[in-house]
Nucleic acid binder design. Sequence first.
DNA 1: CAAATCCATAAGGTCGATCTAATATAAGAA
DNA 2: TTCTTATATTAGATCGACCTTATGGATTTG
Lengths: 100, 100
Amino acid sequence: MPYEDQFAALAHPLRQGILDALQGTPMTVRDLTDRFDTSQPVMSQHLKVLRDAGLVGATPRGASRLYHLEEAQLNALRSFLEAHWRNTLKKLGEDPSHDA
Amino acid sequence: MPYEDQFAALAHPLRQGILDALQGTPMTVRDLTDRFDTSQPVMSQHLKVLRDAGLVGATPRGASRLYHLEEAQLNALRSFLEAHWRNTLKKLGEDPSHDA
DNA sequence: CAAATCCATAAGGTCGATCTAATATAAGAA
DNA sequence: TTCTTATATTAGATCGACCTTATGGATTTG
């Protein structure tokens, strides 16, 4: 089933928050750990989930790693949902052009 | 965090399949059980998850219950993702008007 | 080099999701 | 009413997600 890992990755409030925090602003693990007031191992574990889902990437910067969003994957997931639910609403006799 | 239950509901292949199967075609628990070759209790349990997330609804029809998609909730979730990621991609300097 | 910093990962425990098997409830059918 | 069908729900077991603690590897600094 498509995008199962991506949905699972989104199904956790901290991981949603991480994705929000990375909008337009790559951050290190320490930055994120401080911002969300959690432990460093927990942050690394959640970042691994997001990495395995392809939603974020990391770039070494000195002794740190700069985490950033993976636009391609996020956009692919968005497109999938868009097409999927547009089709759904069409079959239900709705007009998907007006947002609810 | 918004839509956490909805994302969790989508993070299971059977539940994704149920939503697909209900597109334009309300079905009974037995219909769905036969189609996905699973047990009836498992199907009812997953339908409960989808009901609690507001993604499906049920209408009594004789001794059965006809399950159907909840367009409003699906559309609300789609709109949330659309707005959220449109903002994300904008901050990343992308043009979200072209689908990937 | 040694020490400190940054991050990943492993081990251990807890809790919740999921499945199976059994039972309860409700609605037709005879 | 009695029997069958359809669905929900419970109890029990298993498995995986998640958190804490501790440790390992890599990089920078002194």
